[in-house]
Design a protein around this nucleic acid. Structure first.
Length: 377
RNA sequence: GGAUGGGUAUGCCUAGCGGCGAGGGCAGCGGACUGUAAAUCCGUCACAAAGAAACAACGCAGGUUCGAGUCCUGCCCCAUCCA
C-alpha cells in the first residue's frame, strides 16, 4: 500500500506499507544480489546505516544456492537474517547483462549458467515461482531489459512481449499467493515499463501496464548507454502516465546526481550497484563529489573521508588508513568504503524526504549538486 | 681454492635456447564502472615525442656469425655445496 504524504512539484514523499514494515520514500535500496552486499557488509551493518530495503536477484539465487533451498530454510528474510523489506529483481536484467549466454523466446529466456554453464530456462512463471520461494516483500515482473541502442522495430516487439509476460506474471503470482505453503502470501508485484529512448513506446507501454493494477511501476532499460539528458527526458515524459498513488521505481539508477534529478521528476524507488562496486574499487562518495582513495595524494591524509559525516566509518577511520587497507588488499578496506558509501546514499535519501516535506526540494537539489562540483577537501 | 646454477629494462620476480627492434607478472601511477559473470577491467610504466620514422638497453670485455640475450673465451659479481 502506497500512501502519498505530500508533493513538492513533481517530487513525491510517500510511504509504502508492507508485511515487513513501512518504507519511507523516496528510498534507495541497497543491492545484495546473491543475498549479501558485496564488500563483506552484513545485515547488522545495514541496520546501522539506515538501510530500509535490501535488493536481491532471482536469477542469481536460483543458480546458487537454489530457491528451493532458500524456501526450505524459511525464505530469504530468515536465510540472510534481515527482517525489513526485500525487493527481488526478476532476472530481466540478466537478459541484458548476460546477453552472450542466453536466447530469448516467446515462452521465456534460455540461459547458460554463468557459474557452471548448465542450461536454465526462465520465463514469467518461473521467475514468479522463484521469487515466491524466496518470499521477498516485492517481486519484479519478468521483462526484457532491452539494449541501447536498439531499432524501433526491435523495441516494439520487445516491449509487446514484455507486456505479454507481465500478464503471465500477474496471473502466476496471484495463483502462488493463494497456495497454502507460500511463505509470503502478500508478496507485491511491480510491473516494468520499457521502450528505450522511444518516448511514444514508453508512454504507450506505461498505459498498458497500468491497466494491470499492480503494487508499483518501474522504469527499466535506462542507464544502459543513453545520455543523461535522454534518460531524464524519458523519465519526465513517462512518469505522468503512471499512477500518482503508486510507487515509481527507476531501476538500476544511479549516481547521486541521477537520483536528485529523478526524484524531481516523480521517482520513489532507486537501486544501484555504484555505492558498493565503486566502494570496492576505491571510490568514496562525499558531498564534495567522488574521491578515489587509491590516489597517492591520500597517503598521509589523516582526515576522515568526510568530516561532518555521521557514518560509523568516518567517526573512526582516516583516509590514509583506508587507503592503506585497500593497497594491502585487506577486506576491511572494502567493507569500510562500501559501508560509508551506502550510508551516504541512505542519508541523502533522508535529506531528500525532509526537503520534500519542507517544500524546499528545488533549493536542496541545487545546493547538493553544486556541492558535488566543488573541489575536494 | 674447487664444483654447480645464476646475473634480462625504471624497484622486484621471470620468459627466452641463432632472426629479439626482448614477452609476462608484481609493485607504482592514472582511469572506467548505473535493476552486479566485476575485491573487476583498461591504460601507463628507459629517454624523447603532437605523431610517424629512427634510436638506447639482457653483468663487463672480446670473439664466431649475414645476424648474438641466446654460441665461444676471459673477467666481475651472486647463490648453494665441497675443501
Amino acid at each position: 500500500m502506497y500512501k502519498l504524504i505530500c508533493r513538492d512539484g513533481s517530487a513525491k514523499r510517500g510511504e509504502v506499507s508492507t508485511v515487513h514494515g513501512v518504507i519511507q520514500t523516496p528510498v534507495f535500496m541497497n543491492v545484495g544480489t546473491v543475498g549479501a552486499i558485496k564488500g563483506a557488509v552484513s545485515t547488522a551493518d545495514l541496520h546501522d546505516i539506515g538501510t530500509q530495503v535490501e535488493l536481491s536477484n532471482t536469477y542469481h539465487l536460483h543458480v546458487r544456492p537454489g530457491d528451493e533451498v532458500v524456501k526450505k530454510l524459511g525464505g530469504l528474510h530468515k536465510f540472510m537474517v534481515w527482517d525489513k523489506p526485500i525487493l527481488t529483481d526478476s532476472g530481466g536484467f540478466q537478459v541484458f547483462s548476460l546477453a552472450g549466454l542466453r536466447k530469448i523466446k516467446e515462452e521465456g529466456v534460455y540461459f547458460h549458467s554463468h557459474v557452471d554453464g548448465r542450461k536454465i530456462f526462465m520465463g514469467p512463471e518461473e521467475s514468479m515461482r522463484i521469487q515466491s520461494n524466496l518470499a521477498s516483500t516485492i517481486a519484479m515482473a519478468f521483462d526484457e531489459c532491452a539494449p541501447h541502442p536498439a531499432t524501433r522495430d526491435y523495441m516494439e516487439k520487445s516491449v509487446a512481449r514484455t507486456t505479454r509476460w507481465l500478464a503471465r506474471c500477474k496471473q502466476e503470482i496471484t495463483r502462488l499467493n493463494c497456495l497454502e505453503d507460500t511463505i509470503n502470501p502478500q508478496q507485491m508485484l511491480f510491473g516494468i515499463n520499457q521502450g528505450g529512448v522511444f518516448e511514444d513506446i514508453r508512454i504507450e507501454h506505461a498505459k498498458r501496464i497500468t491497466e494491470f493494477e499492480l503494487d508499483g511501476y518501474a522504469l527499466g532499460g535506462l542507464a544502459v548507454g543513453e545520455s543523461h539528458e535522454e534518460m531524464y527526458h524519458i523519465i519526465e515524459k513517462t512518469v505522468p502516465y503512471l499512477p500518482v498513488d503508486k510507487p515509481v521505481y527507476l531501476m538500476g539508477v544511479g549516481t547521486p546526481a541521477n537520483i536528485l534529478e529523478a526524484v524531481e521528476r516523480g521517482v520513489d524507488f532507486f537501486d544501484c550497484v555504484y555505492p558498493a562496486r565503486n566502494g570496492r574499487h576505491g571510490h568514496a562518495y562525499t558531498n564534495h563529489g567522488k574521491m578515489n582513495l587509491l590516489n597517492a595524494k591520500y597517503e598521509l591524509d589523516s582526515d576522515p573521508i568526510e568530516k561532518d559525516c555521521g557514518c560509523p566509518v568516518c567517526r573512526r577511520y582516516s583516509r590514509a588508513y583506508i587507503r592503506h587497507l585497500l593497497k594491502a588488499k585487506e577486506m576491511l578496506g572494502l567493507r569500510l568504503l562500501v559501508t560509508h558509501n551506502l550510508y551516504f546514499y541512505n542519508k541523502m535519501m533522508e535529506e531528500i524526504r525532509e526537503a520534500i516535506e519542507k517544500q524546499e526540494y528545488a533549493e536542496y537539489k541545487r545546493k547538493k549538486l553544486a556541492g558535488f562540483e566543488q573541489e575536494e577537501m
